[in-house]
């Protein structure tokens, strides 16, 4: 891996990957890498929380391992699981060998003892399904582990994460403790659906990404959608500002803005003045009511 040596370096690297980070984002992300502290990112949807993790992985040249949280997510989906089907299949195929093992045994107890001596063969790495958290520990050069939307998971899972993040080690009863060779860079994102526990927050660095300031947003769009001309971009930015000023259920975030400007490019629009504008807005607004409102207020009648 390559580790950036200062926030400025990181900021430049990210910019090369066309991710525009302001000073706060760059500094905190740098600290997360340098100190190997988990980074908790909060902010409204579509401001680039997940994208930041992806770009950090690219900047550090580490693989990105992603764990999407949802209600009901448990350890067997997040950490590891025994591959039961495979174990059974092997037993079926190797029936003769199993028989041979227990051949000399007289009585049930002895047969079980004989078999138990070979239990290790079935509870070994071979039959372990590696889920994201375990993968992140076992990648020798380290990894960027993205735990997305952690606020959607259950409190029990959060408590489990706590243990995991504290020492980057996991105990599998049959195998022993797996410790990370290189601790992964952990990024957690949350949409603030509920308050995370204080204990979890305490272990993390905290970064809040808000809707970007107009200049920042313009440079982000310029970087991500270079094919859009400058005049169109200007016009689009002004339009987005007007849209955000409306009373909307979900004002467009930066990712919607990028999509929308891209869609303008795909339609080869040179200006927003035409009647087509209203059909492009569905890239920007994802609620029927919002769309109606924006069309009524901001676009010319067809």
């Amino acid at each position: 891996m390559t580790q950036p040596d200062s926030p400025d370096t990181l900021q430049r690297q990210l910019a090369e990957q066309r991710y525009i980070a302001d000073d706060t984002v760059a500094t905190v992300a740098f600290l997360a890498i340098a100190m190997r502290r988990p980074l908790l990112i909060e902010g409204p949807a579509g401001v680039g929380k997940t994208e930041l993790a992806r770009q950090l992985a690219a900047a550090c040249e580490l693989p990105l391992i992603r764990l999407q949280c949802y209600e009901g997510l448990d350890e067997s989906k997040a950490l590891y699981e025994w591959a039961y089907a495979r174990q059974l299949l092997y037993i079926q195929l190797l029936k003769e060998k199993v028989d041979a093992l227990t051949d000399g045994a007289t009585g049930l107890r002895e047969a079980i003892e004989a078999l138990a001596r070979h239990e290790d063969a079935f509870f070994s790495e071979r039959f372990l399904l590696h889920r994201p958290l375990l993968q992140a520990l076992q990648t020798p050069e380290g990894a960027v582990l993205l735990i997305d939307e952690v606020d959607k998971s259950d409190p029990e899972f959060e408590a489990f994460l706590l243990e995991f993040l504290a020492d980057f080690a996991v105990t599998i009863p049959e195998l022993g403790t797996v410790r990370a060779a290189t601790p992964p860079v952990v990024v957690l994102t949350s949409n603030d659906q509920r308050d995370l526990s204080d204990a979890l927050k305490r272990r993390c660095l905290y970064l809040y990404i808000d809707y970007p300031a107009p200049e920042l947003e313009e440079s982000i769009i310029a970087a991500r959608v270079p094919e859009a001309g400058e005049s169109l971009r200007r016009e689009a930015m002004a339009f987005i500002r007007e849209v955000r000023a409306l009373d909307l259920r979900k004002p467009p975030g930066i990712s919607e803005s990028i999509d929308w400007v891209r869609s303008l490019g795909a339609l080869k629009l040179e200006t927003l003045a035409g009647p087509r504008l209203r059909y492009t807005l569905s890239a920007l607004l994802k609620h029927h009511g919002d769309l109606r409102r924006a069309i009524d207020a901001l676009t010319p009648a067809p």
């Binding site: 000073d23 706060t24 500094t27 905190v28 600290l31 908790l40 204080d198 927050k201 305490r202 993390c204 660095l205 905290y206 970064l207």
Partner: peptide, 9 residues
């Protein structure tokens, strides 16, 4: 920024 990221959650 550093203080904020470490102290304020």
């Amino acid at each position: 920024i550093t203080l904020r990221a470490t102290l304020i959650k």
